[in-house]
Computed example of a mutant assay.
Amino acid sequence: MESGKLLKAIIESAIDGIITIDNRGRVESLNPAALKLFGYKLEEVIGRNISVLMPEPDKSSHDGYLHRYQSTGEKRIIGKGREVRGLRKDGSTFPFRLAVSEVQYDDRVIYTGFIHDLSKEKEAEQRLKEYAAELEELVNERTKSLKKMLHALSEAKEEVSLSLLKEKELNQMKSRFVSMASHEFRTPLSSIQLSSVLIEKYAEPFDNPHIKKHVSKIKNAVGNLTTILNDFLSLERLEAGKVEPAFTPFDIVKLSEEVTEEMQMIAKEDQNIIYQHTGIESMVNLDQNLLRNCMINLISNATKYSGEHTFIEFNTEVTDTQCIVTIRDNGIGIPESDQKNLFQAFFRAHNTGNIPGTGLGLNIVQRYAGLMGGELHFESKINEGAIFTLSFKR
């Protein structure tokens, strides 16, 4: 008796709907959750064929389905079940997951259906798909706009190289562009990046590869655009004489470990950045922000121009007379014919192909090093990687 009361209490308080029918498909019972889902009162459906709760074509074919179930012994898996649609009293339909169980009860067979409403899950999934599509379209529009501006800037550079007057015009154009890009693109890019992260988080329960693919494309596009903006802003500040080093003592090992951790997060698959410090002394007196920018730029190049499953060696050394920073990769290398122009603004080696970049990074690193009284050197052979070395006097 007590177990019967307990079972009845469990069924009536269940969140999912539970329906039982006899071997002719007539409804025998519905729990409160099922009545709420379909919008009926108990007396309105008791004794009626279960097909009243089904939209077409399931409604017309249900008796045949029940006959096949009984004659062939076909079984439905309890648990995950299958997705079907239900018909409410008001004529609307909704998706739910159905699991069917055959039960022997009082010398007869009844069928119990367990119903889990999927309406909210389907609505959330659709909203995520629409949001991802909107974000991708927005990024594409911003990307096209920025590419047009960059293309216009490149064309202007070639024209103004013919005279000092046109050189001045180019600088003015670059200043306007950088100012516009910084204000007009940084805020929406940050919003897009944050939204893509949230979409990725909220979409995890659905395990939808299409959402993951498009969110990844959005994040990569935003990352590329942010790098372009940072390079142009740094160049503009350098050319305008707005960059003045602030020398302060700091621990180069701590800085390098932070940079390594940060860059490892955005490295390619199975790329490993190996950091090592040589020497007992670790305190240096340089501009920490400028040196950090130099490290990030050089390591970013190393990961960009190296393949997956590779190592990037990042070393620092502090002696009595020098502070040395070395980044070594085994990537595509720099052709000998291009090496003499490597530190020129906007120059890129001819073997970079479709690898994204502005051609400004090394120019910026060299100028930052010079502001701190240091030098930038490199060694490279085609398809054998490159070694970049920053050296500063103590």
Score class of each variant (00 low, 15 high):
residue 328 R to Y: 10
residue 329 D to L: 15
residue 330 N to T: 10
residue 331 G to L: 02
residue 334 I to V: 08
residue 334 I to S: 03
residue 335 P to Q: 03
residue 336 E to T: 06
residue 336 E to Y: 05
residue 336 E to W: 04
residue 336 E to D: 13
residue 337 S to I: 12
residue 338 D to C: 15
residue 339 Q to T: 12
residue 339 Q to H: 03
residue 340 K to M: 12
residue 341 N to D: 04
residue 341 N to Q: 06
residue 342 L to D: 01
residue 342 L to C: 00
residue 342 L to Q: 00
residue 342 L to G: 00
residue 343 F to S: 02
residue 343 F to H: 06
residue 343 F to Y: 13
residue 345 A to S: 04
residue 345 A to G: 03
residue 346 F to I: 02
residue 346 F to A: 04
residue 347 F to M: 14
residue 348 R to P: 06
residue 349 A to W: 06
residue 350 H to T: 07
residue 350 H to V: 11
residue 350 H to I: 07
residue 351 N to R: 05
residue 352 T to W: 05
residue 353 G to F: 12
residue 353 G to L: 04
residue 353 G to M: 07
residue 353 G to Y: 11
residue 353 G to V: 04
residue 354 N to D: 08
residue 354 N to I: 03
residue 354 N to Y: 03
residue 355 I to E: 14
residue 355 I to V: 12
residue 357 G to F: 02
residue 357 G to P: 02
residue 358 T to P: 02
residue 358 T to Y: 00
residue 358 T to A: 01
residue 359 G to C: 02
residue 359 G to H: 06
residue 359 G to K: 02
residue 359 G to P: 04
residue 360 L to M: 07
residue 361 G to P: 09
residue 362 L to D: 09
residue 363 N to W: 00
residue 363 N to E: 03
residue 363 N to M: 00
residue 364 I to M: 15
residue 365 V to Y: 01
residue 365 V to M: 00
residue 365 V to T: 01
residue 366 Q to P: 10
residue 366 Q to G: 08
residue 366 Q to T: 11
residue 367 R to V: 01
residue 367 R to C: 06
residue 367 R to K: 01
residue 367 R to Y: 00
residue 368 Y to L: 14
residue 368 Y to F: 13
residue 369 A to L: 04
residue 369 A to W: 05
residue 371 L to W: 09
residue 371 L to F: 12
residue 371 L to C: 10
residue 372 M to Q: 03
residue 372 M to C: 02
residue 372 M to R: 04
residue 372 M to Y: 03
residue 374 G to H: 12
residue 375 E to M: 10
residue 375 E to S: 10
residue 376 L to W: 11
residue 377 H to N: 15
residue 377 H to D: 15
residue 377 H to E: 11
residue 377 H to R: 14
residue 377 H to M: 10
residue 377 H to A: 15
residue 378 F to P: 00
residue 380 S to V: 07
residue 380 S to F: 06
residue 381 K to N: 14
residue 381 K to E: 10
residue 381 K to Q: 10
residue 381 K to S: 07
residue 382 I to E: 13
residue 382 I to K: 13
residue 382 I to L: 06
residue 382 I to R: 12
residue 383 N to T: 05
residue 384 E to T: 09
residue 384 E to V: 07
residue 385 G to A: 00
residue 385 G to N: 00
residue 386 A to N: 13
residue 387 I to S: 11
residue 387 I to T: 12
residue 387 I to H: 10
residue 388 F to L: 10
residue 389 T to Q: 14
residue 389 T to R: 09
residue 389 T to K: 13
residue 389 T to Y: 11
residue 390 L to W: 00
residue 391 S to N: 03
residue 391 S to M: 01
residue 391 S to P: 04
